[in-house]
């Protein structure tokens, strides 16, 4: 094989590292599940054992397949598929951070204010710079959400300063 062809072969290598994340999670959960049912009577075990063992076998088949491909030099264990497009990583991480912050903060700040702040923050993180949009969208989602979910449907969303103030006012 010429060096040219070898280089080409290398650049053509598929990254399959990311493909293994779901199987590892799945097999991990299956093993944990089986561990939790070890002492149980047959009727509580049968389903979990069947599913867990089948799942682990499938994962084993995939691992064997990937190992064979790796031996043949067709694949590497890069995580490209999961991370691309790389330029989006910062905004994606901020968006994820905001999503997690939303569920952490909502019990204290309440539905309306949290929604307002979350939508505003996410729009900024995703690159929206129009002042009009940055004002209108968060306002609309917060007030629309309040009127529909809390005022009209009386759903028990977490209440914060705004909900308490409005409840007092009306």
């Amino acid at each position: 094989m010429s060096t040219e062809a070898a280089r080409q072969g290398q650049t053509k290598k598929r990254s399959v590292g990311a493909d293994l994340v779901i199987p590892i999670m799945a097999a991990g959960y299956a093993l944990y599940y089986i561990y939790t049912i070890l002492d149980y009577p047959m009727e509580a075990q049968i389903n979990g054992l069947f599913l867990g063992l089948t799942l682990c076998s499938l994962v084993a088949v995939l691992f064997v397949r990937v190992a064979a491909q790796w031996f043949r030099g067709e694949v590497d264990f890069g995580m490209h598929r999961l991370l691309t497009p790389l330029s989006m990583i910062p905004s994606r991480l901020i968006f994820l951070g905001l999503t997690i912050a939303y569920i952490v903060v909502i019990p204290w700040v309440g539905f309306t204010l949290t929604t307002f702040l979350f939508v505003l923050g996410s729009l900024l993180a995703l690159g929206v710079r129009s002042k009009k949009l940055l004002v209108v969208m968060p306002m609309l989602s917060a007030t629309g959400g309040y009127v529909f979910f809390i005022a009209m449907l009386n759903t028990r969303f977490p209440k914060g300063p705004i909900e308490n103030f409005l409840a007092g006012a009306f």
């Binding site: 999670m25 149980y40 599913l51």
Partner: peptide
Amino acid sequence: LIAGFFGLMLGAMGADHVYAAPRGT
């Protein structure tokens, strides 16, 4: 099939239907 069985495994979480014994929770 891995995706499907992963779903089935996650769906199997919770108390069993006869003895209410918690599994994978």
